[in-house]
Computed example of a mutant assay.
Amino acid sequence: MVRTRAGEALVTGLAVALLGAGCASSELPDVERVAALFADPDGDPADRCDLLAPATETALQLAEGVPCPDALPGLPIGAGAVRSVAVWDREAQVLLTDDTFFLTRTQQGWRITSAACTAHPDRPYVCELEGR
């Protein structure tokens, strides 16, 4: 068997990808929990705001001119059930029956970076709530 650097790199890359997939799959319950709590329209607005990434909360308050708990109820955030969760290292996407959320892992845990997102063919998602 001839071993090449490219072959070794491929094997190493596959091993890293498999290890990453294992780590990502262990994050799925936490990501799903945060998304479900944020999607709960009956949840306390202040608690839901605590689930936002800092830049997202700041962007919302600047755009609406009111504190997050006052602005959040007026946004078209879906309240449907979680259909799927995908995690890539420190980023995640949650598809609900009626919305798409994007999350990032922070020192405080998983936080929502974008919500009220709609997919568009040949373009990125357009989100009503997002941090910059």
Rank of each mutant, 00 (worst) to 15 (best):
Y125D: 11
Q93A: 06
P69Y: 03
T58D: 14
A9G: 09
Q93L: 08
R3A: 12
E64K: 15
Q93E: 14
P121D: 15
S26V: 06
L129P: 00
G131K: 01
A63I: 12
D70Y: 07
G74N: 13
L96F: 03
D44W: 07
S26M: 09
T4L: 11
E91H: 14
L75W: 00
E91S: 14
D44C: 07
P41L: 03
G20E: 06
G13A: 12
G7A: 13
Q93K: 10
G78W: 02
A17F: 04
L129T: 00
T104D: 09
P45G: 07
G43S: 13
R33W: 11
V31L: 06
A53Q: 08
G20L: 07
E128W: 10
S26W: 11
A71K: 01
Q93M: 10
L96V: 00
I77W: 02
D70Q: 14
G22F: 01
A17H: 08
G78H: 03
P41C: 06
L52I: 05
L14K: 10
D40H: 08
A55L: 09
H120D: 04
L129V: 00
C23I: 11
A6Y: 11
A21R: 14
G20I: 03
V126N: 12
E128D: 13
A39Q: 09
R132S: 15
M1W: 14
A53I: 03
R132P: 15
T104C: 06
L52H: 06
L51N: 04
A92T: 02
G20H: 05
D42M: 12
F101H: 12
G80Y: 03
L14N: 04
D47Q: 15
I77H: 02
A6F: 11
H120C: 02
M1K: 15
P45V: 08
T113S: 14
Q107G: 15
G80H: 08
L75R: 05
T118Q: 06
G13W: 08
R123T: 14
Y125H: 15
A21N: 09
P69W: 01
G65A: 15
I77V: 09
L14S: 09
R111A: 13
D98T: 00
F101M: 11
E32I: 08
T56R: 07
T106K: 01
R105M: 09
V82Q: 01
D44H: 08
S84E: 05
C117F: 04
L72E: 05
C49R: 05
D42N: 12
D44K: 10
A116Q: 04
G78A: 02
S26A: 12
G43E: 13
V87S: 03
R90F: 08
V82D: 01
V82C: 01
W110D: 02
W110N: 00
E91P: 02
E32A: 15
A55I: 02
C127A: 12
L75F: 00
L60H: 07
F102T: 07
D42Q: 15
G78D: 04
D122G: 09
T104L: 09
T118W: 06
L52T: 02
E8Q: 12
F38P: 01
V94N: 00
P76H: 01
C117H: 07
T106C: 06
E27T: 00
D99K: 05
P121W: 15
S84Y: 02
P124G: 15
L60E: 02
G13P: 05
D50M: 07
E128I: 10
T113C: 09
A24F: 04
D40G: 03
V126A: 13
P76L: 02
L62S: 07
D122Q: 10
Q93H: 08
D122I: 09
